[in-house]
Amino acid sequence: MLVERNDPMLPRWYRIQHRREELANTFTVTLEPQDHEDIPVFDCGQFNMLYVFGVGEIPISISGDPAHPAPLIHTIRAVGNVSNGLQGLKSGALIGVRGPFGTPWPLALAEGKDLLLIAGGLGLAPLRSVMYHVIAHRKAYGRVTLLYGARTPEDMLYRQECEHWRAHLDLDVAVTVDRATESWRGSVGVVTRLIAHALFDPAKTLAFVCGPEVMMRFCAQELEKCRVPGEQIFISMERNMKCAIGFCGHCQYGPFFICKDGPVLPYYQVKDLLRKREI
């Protein structure tokens, strides 16, 4: 039967090319479309809806290089029915994909400015695309700093890549863990601690923050203490998304539909809401 491409609720089938275990319950899949046609281009920070046959659909941010949209790359943590279903799939299995959806990190706005990327936990996944883009267009930006906080050294995502980025002379990379293991030689303490020690010109800095909501809230407060204006801080929000096109209403956050007005939002627009519970 003919499938209409213009129905935004219809997925395309992608085959799992390769899967890689990242952490205990976190894995990365690379995907190629079954129809062998082009993969849509995406902007850093956007997400796709991934569908497991008979189980359901979840939003997952894209973690690949925007300059090379093929294959499609997603890092997924198994926490619910669908993500557990995804974890059970082997290479060669088919999944449905809709997207990309949502607002991107405002990279064009960051050109000529210092760029401060702050990731917490799995929040590094949507910022990895930004790292790829920035490294490929390094001259377009001033100082580039990545601050990454993880739960423990074992919970650090993309650890080898972080080491690789740290070796770049024109990138500042600082990593910290909430809880160290004995062999850990690096920094211990919450990620907000790293902000005051990073080198950036607050008036000319764009900060992209991604992680658990509580982490983003305290990072944004710390950034403001360091005199980064709220207009220059961007966060990536997460809410329950069912349709990703603003129809189902599930992902509402005050006036915003996180699926289409977000996930990336300027901090000053959500600052007051972030202070309120159960919005």
Binding site: N25, R77, V79, G120, G121, L122, G149, A150, R151, D155, D178, R179, G189, V190, T192, R193, G211, P212, V214, M215, F218
Partner: peptide
């Protein structure tokens, strides 16, 4: 304050 943030274990797999 930093210690308290460490204590809430915000990166826990279930979202903390």
């Amino acid at each position: 304050q930093r210690t308290r943030l460490q204590l809430i274990d915000m990166y826990r797999a279930d979202g903390g």
